[in-house]
Amino acid sequence: MALDLKLGRSGFPGAVAAAATLWALAGGMVLLAVVLINFFSVIGGVVWKPFPGDFELTEIGVAVAAFSFLPYTQITGANVTADIFTARASPRTIAAFTCLAALIAVLFAGFLTWRMYFGLLDQKAYNYTSAILQIPLWWGFVPILISLVLLALAAIVTFLENTRIFAGT
């Protein structure tokens, strides 16, 4: 159970769930790397001197990790909703609302992928870099775009699953 990557799904939904889970775990590794950088920077600061790039590596690393978590958040239905007004609604009604929510997520993920692709081109064209290590910031945008494509796929899965509930099959 602990390593259930597909989250109980099969076929296309299963593949997307597995990809979202693995991608989130990869992001988790990035987060752990950021944790270790900060940990050793503090130790370094006490015994010798801090590592001057820790600040910007934290910013970039956490951003990359956070984007990689979005598909997993979507596929596990972890986004916060207020359920109070629909507490007595039928499962069908709720499925319809969830479909609408998933549709918004698909559109938004697609839209953001498109826009952030141009964001990447800007970062590259104007040569945005971090201050000390001078890491080109567009590097971070590459995994982020993959995260957003996965988010769109995850939302499509949510949408399809709920249309099925709505249709009563």
């Binding site: 600061g45 001057p52 910007e56 201050a131 000390i132 001078q134």
Partner: peptide, 26 residues
């Protein structure tokens, strides 16, 4: 030398290094 100084800009970080101090971002 050996102190920790907050950096203002990237060339400011170089100044701090040139003074033998450790540039610190926050």
């Amino acid at each position: 030398a050996g102190t920790k100084l907050r950096i203002p800009t990237r060339t400011g970080a170089w100044v701090i290094e040139s003074l033998g101090a450790a540039p610190t971002a926050m």
